[in-house]
Design a protein around this nucleic acid. Sequence first.
DNA 1: TATGAATGAGCGTTCATTCAT
DNA 2: AATGAATGAACGCTCATTCAT
Lengths: 202, 202, 202, 202
Amino acid sequence: MVYRKTPATEARKDARRKKLLESAVRMFGRHGYHAATVPMIVAEAGSSVGSFYLHFRNKEEIFAAVLEDLGEKISVLFDEIEAEEPNRLLCVERGLESLFLFLAQTPELARILLVESSGLSTRLEKVRRSILQYHVEQIRMNILEMPEVFAVADPRIAAQCLVGAVYEALCCWLEEIPEQRLPVLEVARAVSDYNMRALRAQ
Amino acid sequence: MVYRKTPATEARKDARRKKLLESAVRMFGRHGYHAATVPMIVAEAGSSVGSFYLHFRNKEEIFAAVLEDLGEKISVLFDEIEAEEPNRLLCVERGLESLFLFLAQTPELARILLVESSGLSTRLEKVRRSILQYHVEQIRMNILEMPEVFAVADPRIAAQCLVGAVYEALCCWLEEIPEQRLPVLEVARAVSDYNMRALRAQ
Amino acid sequence: MVYRKTPATEARKDARRKKLLESAVRMFGRHGYHAATVPMIVAEAGSSVGSFYLHFRNKEEIFAAVLEDLGEKISVLFDEIEAEEPNRLLCVERGLESLFLFLAQTPELARILLVESSGLSTRLEKVRRSILQYHVEQIRMNILEMPEVFAVADPRIAAQCLVGAVYEALCCWLEEIPEQRLPVLEVARAVSDYNMRALRAQ
Amino acid sequence: MVYRKTPATEARKDARRKKLLESAVRMFGRHGYHAATVPMIVAEAGSSVGSFYLHFRNKEEIFAAVLEDLGEKISVLFDEIEAEEPNRLLCVERGLESLFLFLAQTPELARILLVESSGLSTRLEKVRRSILQYHVEQIRMNILEMPEVFAVADPRIAAQCLVGAVYEALCCWLEEIPEQRLPVLEVARAVSDYNMRALRAQ
DNA sequence: TATGAATGAGCGTTCATTCAT
DNA sequence: AATGAATGAACGCTCATTCAT
């Protein structure tokens, strides 16, 4: 008799995987890659070590999955703006601001991307880099499309600068104790301002 | 007969310590904090585990020492420029460029600062941050001193953006395979250009 | 499908723990606390280091467990006698003798209690002391209950003397080479005789 | 030219050795055999590790020396009493009391003998045992000399009991917090009382 | 599929002892 | 004789991963 995977089983499996991923985000975000152990992650998810390895080949894999999910979320963010906003300059500006706001709202994810995903294996480094490169590329394309509104010598380096500026400002903001922080929006504007001045033809 | 601590003994101890530090730079730079083990570091230095713990309380300590040494070097770089160059705007520009060149020349140190020192213990995070903050502060002061030549709303955020831009561009440059890289100087100029446009009053 | 913790699994875990404890008794008894290493204990038990730390937080913990088990065994010994023998004087006498016989039969346990558990951490010292104090207290209560048959000035000190006398005599006996030892029973009697003369009202 | 050891050199060497021994007593008494390290001992003595190994073959050796010195002191105590007091019974009584007082006055030495010297190497165990055996033997001789005043079946076991009783009572007394302790003399008397009742013919 | 007990390689660290000065 | 920097064997312990149930 042939065993057929029932939809219910499939759905349950996906739910479990999702739970593990959520738990991993929390644990990696709070404790970092090395300090977050597999037992910790499964305990938080109400699952078991054995189950963990049914869903992910290893610890690296789940971290990569977390990172990829995040990358996906961010690119969706950009795509939406791209679709709505025909003005390339405004597009970059709005993209920058909404990325800033998005990461500020999910500090565990922000920490994973900005801090904890650095200095790990080559594999993970690549995933992290591909997220950043995606933005860089996105911005570079915008610049190339309308050279008359952007006034930069090297669009790729300009894009890298912009990305670096956004992430560093975000890092600094996240590090401050919440009571002393400026409002996110204000910071996002200041960052966007800085970069727009650098990009815009005068 | 009274034993007198000979200068030679003292000098040899210092030399050993220095050798361990150099070896640590190489190992941390190549393999990262976690993958670089104490046995690896001492083997590379031609020393022994016991000797290691004679010079450093633990592994964290030597990483901190490496980072602090680097911080020292960088601040010397800035101080020299500050002393020579009276023009604040040029000061920031030249500082940015020489930092870029310095780190590009010592890629292991660059990797330690930019990649490997992230996501470690609170203690090490602090050391890393203090180096970055030092630049931020340096630049912020320059901006504050001559508000008429700089045209930014929030000097602190502007300084953060600049630092982030420089480091991210550097990261990207270091990651490319040497054969395909643009000349450092060219990149440094492009980065400096981007940030000067953002800072300068038009 | 829901996994149910089988009784078999549980039982196997308990068996493993018990085996580790038995092995620890042998190793601690033969080599002492410091010379008995975790690898030695697990090898003897046919287990693994990882498993060891699944059952015990650390080396100190397993030593404490061994000691506590021993304390439990000894107090059972006393309780049985107390329940059977209404005469307080005979109670003390029989308690003394059966403790002597019990420890003489399990020289590894005896060595752990009498020799190896001394001079360790405060934590372990406390466990050891609590076993000895339990006897002291037991005897003191017997003395207090029937002051007319016991003729001692300070019941607490008398009880301490008795316990010390028993353990020292036992130590000496265990140290002699088996061929030259007097029969245990004879020694036990002599020790009991000494202490009964000290306790009894004339 | 022949080098002749000057008396002054000899004297200085002895002084250094004595200082090391005194420091060892403090360190072993406070921290125990394993926790007291050679660097600790030499630091306390104002000497150096190298110097240490000129005076003692190794750590075990200095512990043995400390123990032997203590044994010497105790046997002197007994010999004096033996010489002064012709009555064998009083001799045992006074010996017991002065040992008690002596050790109560030098708690570091007491701790070394009663607690820390247990469970070490065979070599050290032997030294410790020889001190205790010396007392046992001393007392046994007294008993044998005047069988009419002592009424014990087996003098050796009686002597062991006495020694064990004294040391255990002492241990208990040392362990109590100073403010709550009974006066030493009182305890010494109670212990002596206990043992005299056991020894004396009625 | 789900479980969690079991594994063991490999880590950081300590400290008695040696030895060049 | 005196020094203290140097050594390295050996320890306790962690945790990603496997596997019997």
